[in-house]
Design a protein around this nucleic acid. Sequence first.
DNA 1: CAAAGTACTTTGTAACACAAAGTATATGAG
DNA 2: CTCATATACTTTGTGTTACAAAGTACTTTG
Lengths: 104, 104
Amino acid sequence: MNNDEDTRSPDIDRLIHEPARLKIMAQLYVVESADFIFLMRRTQLTWGNLSSHMSKLETAGYIKVEKEFVDKKPHTILALTEKGKAAFQSYRKVMQQVLDEIPE
Amino acid sequence: MNNDEDTRSPDIDRLIHEPARLKIMAQLYVVESADFIFLMRRTQLTWGNLSSHMSKLETAGYIKVEKEFVDKKPHTILALTEKGKAAFQSYRKVMQQVLDEIPE
DNA sequence: CAAAGTACTTTGTAACACAAAGTATATGAG
DNA sequence: CTCATATACTTTGTGTTACAAAGTACTTTG
């Protein structure tokens, strides 16, 4: 009755898709580990935004957040988890598929 | 005082970035012209969603919407404008840059 | 010891994506 | 002719969310 290929939408991961988080993920993907300040400068996000996006990525299990004290001041280090790496790779693939060309 | 490269975020076009609209734009980019029903099937969107996203793309000047009557029923045809084509190309370039690799 | 700085987290608001309901016309059954 | 169903959408309502502003918890400096 419907011979449409209706499973032709590989669904974009909205958690990564959001520009702010996409930048965070992309940065972490290449540097493997970074602190809050570094990411703030690289992503041009404010403390607040970075913090809240960080929480979301952490809740999803995409990043691991380690807090420690350096010179008696808090210091936050972020890194992708395996799950996060896989999710980013998958997201990349989906987006490249969407952007490169649409089959017929 | 700051020698950060602070213009290193080519800013993602959120109008196109939204998955639903990205699908619409991508479809229109390849087919050059399509009707409402066709797009609905291709994008898996409901009437309502397609309609509202369409309006936004039209307001932005990214698509041109033509309404006519076929068999006394309304028939809506969509096509990218030159502005829309350029915006999509630019979006593609930015996203590919972000996804392919981040400089250093 | 008070003011300013560092390193964040929490809260509030305006925008928005999606679904459900509404609009307008046409066609078909009784 | 009237009611129900269909087609082709548009408008409205609601819950989610992204961003900024305010708040928290300290430490350092004058």
